[in-house]
């Protein structure tokens, strides 16, 4: 998976570090961390990442609004929603927008790697 770029949109520096530790040893380039959805959309334009990990609860623009904005820009954008919340209504709301993968926090590195590979394999 060398060369694939991953953007982290999350207000927690811990999650950025955890994503880097899970993916970089496997050849991914984790390009940056946006602390909210608004900056995340700007960073999407800048980096054109292959995969985005997206938090739900964030200041300024939350994960659902960010996913809508990203998909409006690039309908094929690959998003993994990382959330402390895992209820079905949130998942179905995200699925309706076009988000295909979800991970509940805290997550294991292998779990994230598997979901990223699965998204890229589609």
């Amino acid at each position: 998976m060398a060369g694939y770029k991953v953007l982290v949109i999350d207000d927690s520096p811990f999650i950025f570090k955890a994503v880097k530790r899970a993916l970089e040893p496997n050849g991914f380039e984790v390009v940056d961390n946006a602390p909210n959805g608004k900056i995340g959309v700007e960073m999407y334009d800048k980096y054109q990442p292959d995969v985005i990990t997206l938090d739900v609860t964030m200041p300024i623009m939350d994960g659902i609004e960010t996913a809508k904005a990203l998909i409006a820009r690039a309908p094929d954008v690959k998003i993994i929603m990382l959330s402390a919340m895992g209820d079905e209504s949130l998942h179905s709301q995200a699925r309706e927008i076009g988000v295909k993968q979800f991970i509940r926090k805290p997550f294991k590195p292998d779990e994230l790697l598997e979901k990223v590979n699965s998204l890229l394999g589609e």
């Binding site: 927690s12 520096p13 811990f14 999650i15 609860t57 959330s83 402390a84 919340m85 895992g86 509940r104 926090k105 805290p106």
Partner: peptide, 13 residues
């Protein structure tokens, strides 16, 4: 910020 994320995970769960 790390403790805030810990609290966020507990609240989310």
């Amino acid at each position: 910020t790390y403790l805030a994320e810990f609290g966020n995970m507990i609240s989310g769960r």
